[in-house]
């Protein structure tokens, strides 16, 4: 609208104004004001909530990161960039970053590969594939805490069902609970179990949108199924892959429930990712200023 440019606080001139009456622009301006009010009523509450609970804390986090301050503490000492210096000087930081990278690559990359493979299978004309799709997606809607607890028992090195299965095959159970590397693997496996169905579901939707005649043309040209998949199907799935890599990356970086229920960042901080350490530092360790930067882990002390 070319004329609807008056800002919301422009006072609408009263009828008794000394100016010559110019009714049409004024009416239009009043219409614009009414639209602004309407917009404020409809979208205002939501946008206000976003400002107060998302954008304000985002900015405040940067400010807090320059303070030496603990949650609930009345005193906060400005320390400039000292928290950041501490973070990079901390000997635990490189390890924590490495753990974050391993966890992220394994959950995002592994999830995409497994999800795509599942989707390809479920896209074939098999009986019961609808039911199979539903079952594969089911863990995605479950509480991460419940999932973590149920798998913790499955992984129990002595009495868990996994150790029983491994014993039958002739292996001993790894120290899922006490070895940092195995604990990280355990958390990654459970994360994949819970989330792979979502990736498969989205890829399946993408696969079903692949035009049939393209596949037929490829097979008439003598392309093997594998070749068709790589040269025709995968490029067509590009947008889906892009969408999934963004969303699964965001989810993976924020993963909390499973880690908290299974390992609490342990053993020996072996499953403390960067985001998890914010929780440990800010709430369990009580160093909010340090934590607002994005901290290293502290040993998990309280319950």
């Amino acid at each position: 609208m070319a004329t609807a440019t008056s800002p919301p606080d422009t006072p609408v001139r009263r009828a008794g104004s000394h100016r010559a009456p110019r009714s049409r622009p004024r009416a239009r301006r009043r219409g614009a004001l009414r639209n602004w009010l309407l917009f404020a009523v409809l979208a205002g509450p939501n946008i206000a909530l976003l400002v107060v609970f998302t954008y304000r804390p985002l900015l405040q986090s940067f400010y807090l990161s320059t303070l030496q301050w603990n949650l609930g503490s009345p005193t906060a000492i400005p320390v400039g960039l000292a928290n950041y210096a501490d973070f990079f000087a901390d000997p635990g930081t490189p390890r924590m970053l490495a753990i974050t990278v391993v966890f992220t690559l394994a959950t995002v990359g592994g999830g995409m590969v497994l999800g795509l493979a599942l989707a390809v299978v479920l896209n074939r004309k098999l009986r019961f594939r609808g039911a199979a799709r539903t079952i594969v997606v089911a863990p995605y809607v479950l509480s991460g805490v419940a999932v973590g607890l149920l798998w913790l028992f499955v992984f129990d090195p002595n009495f868990g069902v996994l150790s029983a299965v491994l014993r039958v095959v002739g292996f001993g159970s790894p120290d899922w609970y006490t070895d940092p590397g195995w604990a990280l693997a355990m958390v990654i496996i459970v994360y994949l179990w819970k989330n792979v169905g979502y990736v498969a579901l989205i890829y399946l939707a993408g696969l079903q949108a692949v035009p049939r005649d393209l596949l037929e043309a490829a097979s008439l040209d003598g392309a093997t199924p594998f070749r068709t998949f790589v040269s025709v199907v995968l490029p067509l799935l590009g947008p889906t892959t892009f969408f999934l890599s963004i969303t699964t990356l965001l989810t993976s970086l924020q993963s909390f429930d499973i880690i908290r229920a299974m390992t609490d960042g342990g053993p020996l901080e072996g499953t403390t990712t960067m985001m998890y350490s914010i929780y440990l530092e800010g709430f369990a360790g009580g160093r909010a200023g340090y934590s607002s930067r994005s901290p290293r882990s502290c040993s998990w002390c309280s319950s």
């Binding site: 998302t54 986090s61 914010i278 607002s292």
Partner: peptide, 8 residues
């Protein structure tokens, strides 16, 4: 990310 806005 949710963790960043958590403390404020």
């Amino acid at each position: 990310p949710q963790q960043i806005v958590l403390i404020p």
